[in-house]
Design a protein around this nucleic acid. Structure first.
Lengths: 217, 217
DNA sequence: ACCTCCGGCACACAACTGTTTACTGAACCC
DNA sequence: GGGTTCAGTAAACAGTTGTGTGCCGGAGGT
């Protein structure tokens, strides 16, 4: 019995537990380095398990990395959709969004750091995995935005661009919050302040948008 | 004679030459990995020099990394200023800016990749060095923008935010162009198309901006 | 001409890496 | 209860790594 059974055996539970431990240890170690320098032995040493045991769970370290991506971003989709669907005044919406990001960073700093770091990192598989997830987010956001009255008659292309812009802004904001938390940049209040104004800038641009002829792509 | 003499001796020239070779080799190797996994021996092997020779030029690999930052971004300041100062219609300005970014990426792909990758990378010293440079850019851009008639009576804070937004957008665009060049994302034309519309979105938001009361920071 | 400087070298060091092998022993199924 | 499955082990493999030492040899200054 090795499939995802409804009645997980004792052994399955134990296996899942060490797997979790490996993932957690990996994420912890990634606080001060990047994935392409993270060693397999380094991880197993922290967990307290023999190096060979690693292969029972992952093909190699970048495989573990890809799993971490799904874990970090995969569970976020419903949250995003829920957060965007709730209607309210523009001002409040922005405030809530920024506060939601701040809360998420406080709750999962490791995951945020990992995504920000490996988004353009040295491991191709992880890079593309993150790219794919962010793309999904952009589509989802765009889909919600398209239903707003403001952008009723926007071209599909423009809505898509808007979604990407929002997603990128959110990721950058999250990363800025993280840096604030570890005292590397401006403090949290300042980050929130700038993020709010940045979102408002986009929002204003959106309200006055005119789909000019643009030759291309 | 070891200072920056106007009459560089034969020995100084040779030293500078190997130093250059080390930097170039390092940048090349960083195409497929990140700095925190780049080995000192790896570099010297490529250059064809003994490992010990490395210490004649850099304290360690992250020291070389910091040098690469200055080299990548330091020389860019005059270019930015020149590009921004030239006046023209909004449309043309955006088109030219995007094309300028594309050209820069084509000319210095390694430097662009390095900055994008190590901006949030695992080596603190390099991370802060990049942050400082981008901050300088943001200030410079803001200073130019402040003189535009559109944002005459903007608060200093808002202008600063606008500068940061532009810089971040440029960096992201550059990184997107790079990915396009190596076939990892959408093609170059699409990237340019989205970048133009994104810049126009910001530009529109700027024209209709009202400095609302925002409690904080 | 002689002495000094110094970039680069060869070598040695201990520590570390990813991967394979044959194995053990407890939980599992029938 | 007896046979099977399989997560985890110990040991060995051939490489790799960063760093320190002492030395060389050509260029530089006087």
């Amino acid at each position: 019995m090795s499939t995802t059974a409804s009645h997980p055996s004792q052994r399955d539970l134990q296996k899942a537990r060490t797997r979790r431990a490996l993932l957690d240890a990996g994420l912890d170690l990634l606080e001060h380095q990047s994935l392409s320098s993270l060693g397999l032995r380094e991880i197993t040493r922290v967990v307290g398990v023999s190096p060979a045991a690693f292969y029972r769970h992952f093909r190699d370290v970048s495989d573990l990395g890809v799993t971490l991506v799904e874990e970090s971003l995969g569970s976020l989709h419903p949250v995003i959709r829920a957060g965007l669907t709730e209607h309210s005044q523009d001002r409040d919406r922005i405030d809530h969004a920024v506060e939601a990001i701040a809360a998420y960073v406080r709750a999962h700093p490791g995951h945020v750091r990992f995504v920000a770091r490996e988004r353009h990192g040295g491991v191709a598989a992880v890079r593309t995995a993150i790219g794919a997830q962010l793309d999904r987010f952009a589509r989802e956001v765009a889909q919600v935005l398209a239903q707003d009255e403001v952008s009723r008659d926007w071209s599909e292309d423009d809505v898509r661009m808007l979604g990407e812009t929002y997603v990128d802004t959110m990721v950058m904001t999250a990363s800025a919050f993280l840096e604030a938390a570890q005292g590397e940049g401006p403090d949290e209040a300042t980050v929130a302040h700038t993020a709010r104004r940045r979102l408002r800038l986009i929002s204003v641009g959106r309200r006055h948008w005119t789909s000019e002829p643009d030759p291309g792509p």
